[in-house]
Amino acid sequence: MTTVSEKLLTRAEETGTPGRAGPPGSAVPLLSLRGVRIADGSDGREIVHGVSFDLTPGKVVGIVGESGSGKTLTCRAALGILPPHFEVTGGSVEIEGTDISTLSPARWTALRGATISAVFQDPASYLNPSLRIGRQIAEVVRVKKGLGRREARQRVLALLRAVHLQEAELVHDQYPFELSGGMLQRVLVAAAIAADPRILIADEATTALDVTVQAEILDLLADLRDRAGLALVVVSHDLAVVAQLCDEVLVMRQGEVVEQGPTRRVLDHPRHDYTRMLIRGHESYGLEKFLGQPKEES
């Protein structure tokens, strides 16, 4: 089976054939959340009150909500990295059909990066400031793919090109402080896909970036989906960002999924007041005011 980054890499080197990949509609979803509840164990307070969705190859699920809505905790539960004291108190998370509560630490280590991976806001804080970029990504491919030093270097360069970083050789030898926020986020995406995951969670991955740079990163995620069949969870406080990419959207508020459905349906026929408020904000104050009335089809 061809892997995510192989597909990207071959495309980047213009030797491969493009095309939407991934097994069509396989029976077992890559990621499945069923009524996930999360509580703060220190006082027993429930923070997330039941989240459910299925993610199949090439599908994109969006979660929109303010800070404190529980969207990041939900992602962290799926990645098995809830903060101290927090625990899943109800429902289940399955990755490729396996309930994650049954996973040993060793199995988790094997899954992370290789099956499920993530990119967060503030890329600089996920990189070691005193190590060159190339070395930090090489570590991933050497550990996860068992590549030797020379092979790892070639692969890292190919990954940097795949995330559209110009002058990959230069970036390879630079330190994080020498790169802009947009470039750092590309580096993080390169590291996140280095071990060929099938699921990528992007949690406010473009929030800190300029709009023109944000568009480049969202384009890159769309490329990953189209060319490699990567399944995405896109988390944002901005409904419009989620609307760019997602097939299905969950609107969260104070730990509750107040609305969930196909993106088009939610945008055209919102059922919850909160969703309507989010849409009204865009229609009244955003570019939408000047870009014509909502279309039936987009």
Binding site: V211, Q214, A215, A240, V241, A243, Q244, E283, G286, L291
Partner: peptide, 8 residues
């Protein structure tokens, strides 16, 4: 580049 509810 600006995301809107109707795409970019």
């Amino acid at each position: 580049s600006a995301p809107t509810l109707r795409g970019t």
